[in-house]
Design a protein around this nucleic acid. Sequence first.
DNA 1: GCCTGGTGAAATGATGAACAATCCGAATCG
DNA 2: CGATTCGGATTGTTCATCATTTCACCAGGC
Lengths: 248, 248
Amino acid sequence: MAMPATNGSVAPTEVEAAFDIDVAAIRRSSTADQVAQVLRAKITEGALPPGTPLPEVSLADSLGVSRNTIREALRILAREGLVEHHLHRGAFVAVLDEEDIADIFRVRRIIEASAAEAAVDADPERLRPLREAAEQMVAAAAAGDASGVVAGDIEFHRRLVSLLGSSRLNRFFEGMQGELWLCLAMVARSESESQAMAAKHLELCEALEHGSSPTAARGQILDHLVPCEVELSEIARDLGERRAKLAR
Amino acid sequence: MAMPATNGSVAPTEVEAAFDIDVAAIRRSSTADQVAQVLRAKITEGALPPGTPLPEVSLADSLGVSRNTIREALRILAREGLVEHHLHRGAFVAVLDEEDIADIFRVRRIIEASAAEAAVDADPERLRPLREAAEQMVAAAAAGDASGVVAGDIEFHRRLVSLLGSSRLNRFFEGMQGELWLCLAMVARSESESQAMAAKHLELCEALEHGSSPTAARGQILDHLVPCEVELSEIARDLGERRAKLAR
DNA sequence: GCCTGGTGAAATGATGAACAATCCGAATCG
DNA sequence: CGATTCGGATTGTTCATCATTTCACCAGGC
């Protein structure tokens, strides 16, 4: 289905194989996708806090594109869960309440536990990206780069899920992580907390490498997710209270 | 306010509760969504075989809406995976190859196995929708209603996944089932096969009700999914070969 | 004969303007 | 003081238009 639309009948030649990666990259994204990417960055980096209205005309004006293009971009982000779309009321940066956090972690427990199982009897070579992400977290924490630690955290779990080998699951999981970023952009962690979190991931990585049993791996991932959920849940509650107070 | 007084400001009263379903249905209907729903039905019922091009102008003309609205509807369906969008080439009804089937079942195994675990220690009352879907399959099979059996099958697994209690997972799973429908619309099962499939689901349902252990439930679901995958994989291969021959 | 290269039609990508429908807030009235 | 009504602002939808890209067809050279 997603194969490059090369010839239909002839077997793939070496010429095709050489350009196989590039053909996908050459496909320039449409302007709507570019706009969506810009807005996505603005949202995830915290420039547009949750709940911010996104008027079509002002966005079109400031970004220099047509209103229809903005509408398409907002539809894209709405499908990703980063913006909420209310009929005849417009688009707003999505707000995650505690129920959303709980919902996301219900999914994460299911998916990542299975991924941990897949990790124990996987080729050790396939676990190298995991270790690299964890080491990147440690380096970022040592350099005091808090956002780098968060990025490494996201990347670590993304690569863990990718061990399951399903492109649909990867897309789904990445979309959920995009939602989580709505909260992550708001949290300022201390340096010691960042280092502790990085160390935890490295430790988890080693546990998976010298994998004992599938059930043990499941348990370790589940234990790892618990503190993360309570922290984000608190953040979501605080944001909600602050918003309610501000609205009053 | 002209027609049905869908009040805008008053707090939800018992009056609203009575119309609760209708207001939700009415509010959710922008024309783009309606168009998407029409096309979705056409695709899943097999009127538009996989690979069919979907030109914007002719669709806009035949459905009596603007081209922009068609574009939005096509984007919606593209996000759902029912149509593929190629830049500057347009939209086509999605084509599922064997890799897609394998990918979908990789996900189904993970999700539904967890759902089966959740089923064993769930309130028996929550399993009633499952049984109802299975019984609906049996009734449809007895009446020779093949599409009814398929619908019951979809519904059975949808309700099984909903036991996990995650709205995001529900949406994700429903989207995948929409993709599977692309193949299901093509298969014509014999009456005896339909009856066997219905019986299998009822049997599976009972096994979950008198649930023994979580691992046993996992195993039963996984065993149940195997024949389904091989069947759909064969269908996908046949469709692919037929399409290749037709293109030549 | 097959491949390379140009040409033109057709479809999409994107813009701008316009109108109707709707929501929100503020002024108005009892 | 509360409910109603009115007007501005925003969205939903359509139309017309132009630029880009793709594809199919045809000509020419090896």
